[in-house]
Design a protein around this nucleic acid. Sequence first.
DNA 1: GTAGGGTTAG
Length: 370
Amino acid sequence: MMMGTRLHLRYHFSSRAPKVTKLDDALQLFDEMLHRKPLPSIIEFNKLITPMVKMKHYSTALSLFKQITMAGIRANIYTMNISINCYCRLNHLNYGFSILATIFKLGHPPNVATYATLINGLVLADRVFEAVELFKKLRRHKLCEPDQVMYGTVINGLCKVGHTSKALELLSFIESGSCKPGVEQYNAIIDGLCKDGMVDDALRLFTKMIENGVHASVITYSSLINGLCKFGRESEAARMLIEMEEKGIPPDLHTYTILVDAFCKQGSVKDAEFAVQAMVRRGLHPDVVTYSALIDGYCLRGELDEAHKVLDLMVEKDLKPNIITYSSLINGYCKKKKINDAINLFREIRSKGLVPNGVTYNSMLQGLFE
DNA sequence: GTAGGGTTAG
């Protein structure tokens, strides 16, 4: 069973030479812990598995929990909540709810984290209306007292479906209560406002947040920089970038990727390349999203050779291009009327097991019929 | 002592 898990992971992790990863270390430790006598407590296992979940290895985490149970260690409410989260992230919300049933059956009442995880599961499944209903039901039946995280989850869901004003209502409700909003709640709404094109409202909320004594985070700044760039306010974005540095909040991978994308969309791929160099100098590693944005930038300019150079570079770094990366390239080929190249790439994508989606087909069709 | 929410690409 253990071997199976490892092979599975390696398959996902790297398409080339196997390399020792932190995940492998964690699995090795798990193996060792399982054979220790006496067995470590469930708390120790929860601690080991939590970082794996953060690295998005949900199925692995679930399989480890199964092994723990088989070894006779009883799961506690933390374990259950982690499992629910894993199922939700794997789009198995129903399994998440069946764990809720198990919790009840065992006579251990679920807590606010259990419900917040399920509410988030509904949000992730685009079932925001049901998420809000569950939230209301919990309050009506006094099943649990919502906390910051739960409010943040609901606010995030409301913003996701464009109900930013409802989210703002909830925020002012929290502001008037005993559970003060934190930076995460503000971030969700600031981001939602930016995405709705209400960047000035986002900036006003940003000011209000600081007046309320809540410190901005790298995510607050990244959302605002993204919003400002998307609506042609680059100089203000640049000012934000300076401001965050001054406040001791250095831009991270996401922030730089936002900048790379913004430069590419302006057509200045050179500046995007400079941004990549700058992030590397700071010890940040560009990821699939960063390189995909760059590839798209080159494709939009019709510089397909350059785009392919970036593609080669990412493969060299063991980063797997995904359907979004390839769709940009297909779009690039189609724009240059290199239909055969586009078709060949399309075949290659399918042979890699990637599934073309609407955007991919759209590019192909435009190339074929325009 | 251990759990749950937020930012990026076509």
